[in-house]
C-alpha cells in the first residue's frame, strides 16, 4: 500500500508547488493519474520513487518510510522495491536487449545469478522478444523498446511499478497492446501500478483514477492538491 500525508514539494527557483493532503493507493491496485501538463504528475511519481525528496509530509510505500530514507537507502529502495517505466523508454543505446533488462542488476550491486538471467529470459519471452535478446535496442521498433523497458522494470519483481506516460510515444494499436501487457504483467506479479497518462481512453482499464486537474490551486496555477 502507498500512503502520503501532508505532502509538500517545490522546485528551487520555481513557482511550482505540489501540495497533497492525503493520497492512498491500495496494494495490487492499478491507478491512473491524469491531469494537465505541469500539474505535478511526474513529480508525484518521482517523490513516490524516492528520486525527489518532499519538503514536508510523509510517503510510506509498504512498510518503508520513503521520505525519511537517506539517499543511499532511497537508491536501494528504487532498485529493489520500485520498477520505473518512462515515456521515452530511456534504454541504454550501447547495450543489447538482454543487457538493458539486466542493467539494474549490473549497476546496483544486485545478484546477477542464473535465476536472475532466467527471469530476464522469461520476461522477454512473455513480451515476445525472446528472439531479440542479443539485438541492439536501436534496431527495435518503438513498441518493442517499451516492452524492453517494462521487462527492465519488472526484473527485480518490485511490489510497486511507476509508469510515466509509457504509451505517450506510441501509435494507438501499439499503445493498446503495451497497456494490455503492462496490466496483465502487473496483475500476474501482484504488484501495485501507478501510471501517469494523458490518454483518457485507457482509464477504464484501471481500478482507480486520480485527476490532478480538479485539485489545481488558484493561487499556484501549477499546483495539485489531493484529498
Amino acid at each position: 500500500m502507498i500512503s502520503t500525508s501532508e505532502l509538500k514539494f517545490s522546485y528551487p527557483h520555481s513557482d511550482f508547488h505540489l501540495v497533497i493532503d492525503q493520497l492512498t493507493v491500495a496494494a495490487g491496485c492499478a491507478t491512473a493519474v491524469v491531469g494537465p501538463s505541469g500539474s505535478g504528475k511526474t513529480t508525484l511519481l518521482h517523490l513516490l520513487a524516492g528520486i525527489l525528496t518532499p519538503d514536508a509530509g510523509q510517503i510510506v510505500v509498504g512498510d518503508t518510510p520513503v521520505h525519511s530514507l537517506s539517499e543511499a537507502a532511497r537508491r536501494q529502495f528504487r532498485l529493489k522495491q520500485v520498477g520505473l517505466v518512462f515515456q521515452d523508454f530511456e534504454l541504454i543505446e550501447y547495450l543489447n536487449v538482454l543487457d538493458n533488462v539486466l542493467l539494474p542488476c549490473r549497476i546496483g550491486h544486485l545478484s546477477l545469478d542464473t535465476a536472475t538471467r532466467q527471469r530476464a529470459d522469461v520476461l522477454l519471452e512473455r513480451v515476445g522478444l525472446s528472439g531479440h535478446r542479443r539485438k541492439s535496442v536501436t534496431r527495435l521498433s518503438q513498441g518493442e523498446r517499451q516492452r524492453v523497458a517494462i521487462c527492465r522494470a519488472l526484473l527485480s519483481q518490485p511490489p510497486l511499478l511507476l509508469a510515466d506516460e509509457p504509451t505517450g510515444n506510441l501509435d494507438p494499436e501499439t499503445s493498446a497492446h503495451i497497456m494490455r501487457l503492462l496490466l496483465e504483467t502487473v496483475k500476474e506479479a501482484g504488484a501495485t501500478l501507478v501510471m501517469v497518462t494523458h490518454d483518457h481512453s485507457l482509464l477504464q482499464q484501471f481500478d482507480r483514477t486520480v485527476d490532478f486537474a480538479q485539485f489545481l490551486s488558484k493561487d499556484a496555477p501549477l499546483a495539485g492538491e489531493l484529498a
Binding site: E71, A72, R78, L79, L84, E90, L103, P104, I107, G108
Partner: peptide, 20 residues
C-alpha cells in the same frame, strides 16, 4: 547526460556513474 540521468533514476549512485 540522459543516460546518466536514467542510471540515477534506476538507482545508480553518482559515485557508480563516475566509476563507470
Amino acid at each position: 547526460a540522459k543516460e546518466i540521468q536514467t542510471m540515477n533514476k534506476l538507482g545508480c549512485s553518482r559515485f557508480t556513474v563516475l566509476k563507470l
